Amino acid sequence: MKNSLKISGRVLLAATLLMGNLALALDKQPVGKVSIAEKQFGLLLGGSTGGGTLTFHGKKYPFKLKGLSAGLNVGFSKMSAVGEVYDLKTVSQFPGTFTKLEASVALGGGVGGMRLQNENGVIMNLRSRTKGLDLNLGNVTGLTITMSR
């Protein structure tokens, strides 16, 4: 029992430090917010599909997303995320392919976070919750966002 408490404490400390670094690394004020709902699936190659809403200058902009990961992926899960948007000057800069800018963290109970950046320099700092079974031994290669009409 002592060992499990030590391990739990170390995991919590590492997660707290990483989440703190994600927040502190952005020495800027957010210019918008996002909320995302995504379904993740996989058998060898993994993928995801979903949508979300960008809130920018008091207006809401719906978007669609698709993702791809390489490596061993097995399972199906649903992920929801919320977060802040940085370095966005116009809505037209938001669509594109977002890739991991910094390491992500996944905690027990399906809680995690990551920082993504697209080719226009727009950054999303996300906090997520996942439900379902998802074994992913690969890396996210990209998350492509297109604006909904």
Rank of each mutant, 00 (worst) to 15 (best):
M1F: 10
K2C: 11
N3L: 13
L5W: 12
K6L: 15
K6V: 15
S8D: 15
S8Y: 14
G9I: 04
R10I: 15
R10L: 15
V11F: 07
V11G: 02
T16P: 05
T16E: 06
L17H: 02
L17N: 03
G20W: 03
L22G: 00
L22N: 01
L24W: 12
A25C: 09
A25V: 09
L26G: 10
D27V: 08
D27T: 11
K28I: 00
Q29I: 07
V31I: 11
K33R: 09
S35W: 07
I36N: 05
E38Y: 06
E38N: 04
Q40P: 02
Q40A: 12
G42A: 10
G42L: 06
L43V: 13
L45H: 10
G46A: 04
G46M: 05
G47I: 09
G47E: 13
S48G: 15
S48Q: 14
G50I: 04
G51E: 10
G51L: 04
G52W: 05
L54Y: 07
L54M: 08
T55E: 14
F56N: 02
F56M: 03
G58D: 12
K59C: 12
K60N: 15
K60A: 15
K60Y: 13
K60E: 15
Y61I: 08
Y61W: 09
Y61E: 07
P62D: 14
F63M: 07
K66Q: 13
L68H: 08
A70N: 06
N73A: 11
N73S: 09
V74A: 08
F76R: 05
F76C: 02
S77V: 03
M79Y: 02
S80K: 06
A81G: 06
V82I: 09
G83T: 09
G83W: 09
D87E: 12
K89N: 15
V91E: 10
P95G: 02
P95T: 00
P95Q: 01
T99R: 07
T99A: 12
L101R: 06
A106P: 06
L107F: 05
G108D: 10
G112Q: 01
G113D: 03
M114R: 03
L116Y: 08
N118I: 06
E119N: 13
N120H: 09
V122C: 03
V122K: 00
V122A: 03
I123M: 00
N125I: 01
L126D: 00
R129E: 08
T130Q: 07
T130K: 01
K131I: 12
K131M: 11
L133F: 15
N136E: 09
L137C: 12
L137K: 09
L137G: 12
N139S: 14
V140D: 10
T141V: 14
G142T: 03
L143A: 01
I145Q: 02
T146F: 06
M147L: 15
M147R: 11
S148H: 13
S148M: 10
S148F: 10
